[in-house]
Design a protein around this nucleic acid. Structure first.
Length: 264
DNA sequence: CAACCTGTTCGCCA
DNA sequence: ATGGCGAACAGGTT
């Protein structure tokens, strides 16, 4: 499931563990999820360390532990974080288990498009750093937005919205939602949007990011009925505005749903 | 049984 | 050198 707001939702699941010591770490170093990660160091540094804090940068989660240790988790397409009782027994897709006295912190990812990283030291590793401003950041302004679209002017706007180097945390359903709200056809070239439409697109990008973060924090997380997300999966999906049957096609390498009537 | 999937990275090409 | 695009990664679900 994981895009911006869901990543935030999963990150918070491990908040229950803050301040507590890790007593044991269980993983299988050969799994793809640990590609290019020093798992021996991960285990040796995390055992005995306390979880101090965590945050997200786009879809990347960062968990900070005592002793300058940072665990990075990316959920990929099918990843999830859970908190389980102390006697939890992992199955084959539970790739990482951090055991505390009262609970087990679990990372599960059947498809293993996600990734577990580890870094020790007070100087940040490349994967922890990020030049890209978050959508909510003041630096994500019209100037940044316009120059990013200009740089990718030959690509369809849908594909541009999926580039994490500009739209931190935006994924497939959010991109469709943003374009639908801004009434822009997903296959329109990014460089073909005039100033008024770029302004609308920035506004709707901020709106969708802010609203999904606000709503998805709750356990019964459902976006409002009026949102495109409820219609975009079924073949019979209709535009929430004018009830036109949605069109579906692959744009920017992903399945895209849009309304041919109100998106131009 | 086949098609499909809320993500990223790589190699090829323009 | 930079950007666009299709393929590959893998297993569960429809």
């Amino acid at each position: 499931m994981p895009e911006l707001a869901e990543v935030e939702f999963y990150r918070r699941k491990w908040d229950a563990a803050i301040g507590q010591r890790i007593r044991a770490v269980e993983l299988h170093a050969r799994k793809r999820i640990f590609r290019e990660t020093n798992t021996r160091e991960l285990v040796s540094r995390l055992v005995g360390a306390r979880l101090i804090s965590s945050h997200t940068r786009g879809k990347q989660m960062l968990f900070h532990f005592s002793g300058d240790a940072t665990l990075g988790i990316h959920l990929g397409m099918s990843g999830a974080l859970r908190v389980e009782p102390a006697n939890f027994e992992p199955d084959k897709h539970d790739h990482l288990v951090l055991r505390q006295r009262q609970r087990a912190l679990v990372f599960r990812d059947p498809r293993q498009f996600g990734r577990v990283r580890f870094h020790h030291g007070d100087v940040a590793a490349d994967w922890m750093r990020r030049e890209t401003p978050e959508i909510s950041d003041r630096r994500f302004d019209q100037q940044f937005f316009d120059s990013f679209l200009q740089r990718h002017r030959r690509a369809p706007i849908k594909a541009v919205l999926l580039l994490q180097s500009g739209f931190s945390g935006i994924g497939n359903w959010m991109a469709d939602e943003i374009l639908w709200r801004a009434k822009i056809r997903p296959n329109r070239k990014a460089g073909a949007l005039n100033a008024a439409r770029r302004s609308a697109l920035l506004r709707e990008t901020r709106f969708v990011a802010r609203e999904s973060l606000r709503v998805i924090g709750r356990e019964d997380r459902q976006m409002p009925k009026s949102w495109l997300i409820h219609e975009r999966w079924s073949a019979s999906g209709k535009c929430p505005r004018d009830k036109t049957k949605l069109r579906r096609a692959t744009i920017g390498g992903r399945t895209t749903a849009w309304c041919v009537r109100c998106q131009r």
